[in-house]
């Protein structure tokens, strides 16, 4: 019962608000009582909108306009004469205010809209590049490690290789040698093949991140050049890797 009364009240309330809003809107639209006889030419009207009004540099926005009683329409800058209604796409390089001028026998009207272009901050490569390549390589190049008898890139390997790829992107002149290594288990011959597959997996991953294949050389040492000489899992893991070496040219 309580609920129903509440609903009824809110219903009345909404009706009231709608009526009031309708009344408000009508007021400016309602034309003032005009003197009917003199058939003077009507004044032109024009509207201009940009959707979206905020874009990133390189994106485009759509300008659309609508006019009445105009014989000539011009949108500036860079759009020029247009028809009475329509839309066009614009790709401003910086924030721009577009203006439309409508002229007709009844006079002249203007409208404008502003398109804000967000310009990304310029990359500060000059700062980073102060570190010489070799030093940066030693600090940032990461080897990929593998599971026993496997050559697929593990999640930690993806992170390591992505980091190495970033470095290679920043230093486009850098060329690298990927050495494939295996642990002491297994035999010399098969491990050469396995190490070879590891270097190729690492190389393909870098290529997929946009590093050109020509910058990447590979060699597989199998288990012939270990980093660590003990027979422990820790040592074996150290040896199962794709190892990066910076080539001087």
């Amino acid at each position: 019962m309580e609920l129903r009364r509440g609903l009824r009240w809110s219903g009345w309330l909404i009706l009231l608000v709608v009526v009031m809003l309708a009344g408000c809107k009508k007021k400016p639209a309602a034309p003032p009582p005009t003197p009917p006889p003199p058939p003077a030419p009507a004044a032109p009207t024009v509207t201009l909108r940009a959707v979206p009004s905020v874009i990133e540099r390189g994106q485009s926005t759509t300008l659309s306009w609508n006019s009445t009683n105009a014989t000539e329409l011009r949108i500036e800058p860079r759009v020029g004469s247009v028809g009475p209604q329509g839309s066009t796409s614009a790709q401003p390089q910086r924030s721009t205010t577009y203006t439309v001028v409508a002229e007709g026998p009844g006079g002249r009207a203007e409208a404008s809209t502003r398109v804000t272009v967000n310009v990304p901050p310029p990359p500060p490569p000059r700062e980073v590049r102060r570190i010489p390549l070799r030093e940066a390589f030693e600090k940032r190049a990461r080897d990929a490690f593998f599971d026993f008898d496997k050559s697929n890139i593990r999640p930690d390997g993806r992170i390591a290789l992505t980091q190495t790829a970033e470095l290679l992107r920043e230093y486009p002149e850098a060329r690298v040698l990927i050495e494939g290594h295996c642990d002491e288990r297994g035999t010399t011959e098969y491990n050469i093949g396995l190490g070879s597959d590891r270097t190729n997996a690492a190389k393909q991953f870098l290529v997929s991140l946009g590093i050109t294949a020509e910058r990447i050389e590979t060699v597989s040492y199998g288990k012939e050049k270990p980093f660590c000489f003990e027979s422990t899992e820790e040592c074996w893991q150290t040896n199962r890797r794709a190892h990066f070496i910076l080539l001087s040219r």
Partner: peptide
């Protein structure tokens, strides 16, 4: 046999 030899074009890169 298998040899790790230096490629003439790129002496830093051993080839198998």
């Amino acid at each position: 046999y298998t040899a790790y030899e230096q490629a003439a074009a790129s002496p830093e890169v051993p080839r198998t």
